[in-house]
Design a protein around this nucleic acid. Sequence first.
DNA 1: TCTCCTCGAGATCT
DNA 2: CTCGAGGAGA
Length: 320
Amino acid sequence: MAYGYRYGSSVSERKDKGKSLIGFPESYCIVDTETTGLSPSEEHIIEIGAIRIEGGVETGRFQSLIQPPKKRSYRGKPVFVDSFISSLTGISNQMLLDARTEAEVLPEFAAFLGDSLIVGYNVGFDVNFLYDAYERVLGKPLCNDFIDLLRMVKKLYPEMPRHRLQDLAEKFRVDTEGEHRALADVIITRECGKRIQKDILRRYESLEAFQMLYPKSCRLPNPVIKPSKEAALSGQHCVISGRIETISRAETKALIESLGGIQDEAVSRKTSILILGNGLYGANKPGEKSVKQKKAEQYRESGQEIEILTEEEFFTRIRR
DNA sequence: TCTCCTCGAGATCT
DNA sequence: CTCGAGGAGA
């Protein structure tokens, strides 16, 4: 039954795969993969790059090489990639010899990605490779919906002779330094995405008007002001103890303020959330409580409503 | 008018 | 895979 018929002979493969949507959400994850070739059934992922955006600000980066099964041996050394791929991407057999396998990398990537919307360029390509790798390694499919910039680009710029990412970067004068490595392509895609969004607003007045050019079934609900999300940190005073590892100080401040919160330096009677960063500061040793944490626990015992969250707990709390 | 089907043509990813 | 053309059905 798992291999159900679908008229004639075609079998429904990649069941529960996400849908291709059109829109510009506030939270998503830009993803790119490098592979040993074009066919998911015969080739393998050799690099994953990703940047997570939440509430419009970057909240994390992911980058890892992946050692694929070896194709053959040459003079006693394993060959993972053909010379065409090596010269295209700059990823050599030697680099892959030192890399971890997908069994090690994929669980990490899955945790990073979560159920984020995936954004990319001709991203169906990457989604297919990732879907198959998820099934192999995690025993479950990749179900995330995705947004393909190429789809919008074809509609927006029909006069362009070709619509490759490099053509788009050239049009927008986006720096292509390091192109054809996963994280570099993610950054190029992000820059192009910003220009596309601006162009849409100029030409169609609103994102909704542009989305009307597409079937209803693929229109993503827009950044409507969701009260629950807006209120995520509304009016709450937050204090950070230690160092947030996934993002910089400035980004943390921007993130808290974009969600309506206020960041303070010291724990006080106003404080409602204390965030324990994974990174430690000078005098603090692993396992020891920081001065700020002790103080927060004191306040809590005296009846103040104050949440003490780890870095991970903080991010999952604001994600919804 | 709007949505959903089928069919053929044309590109994009490494 | 996605789109446009052309057609069926509300």
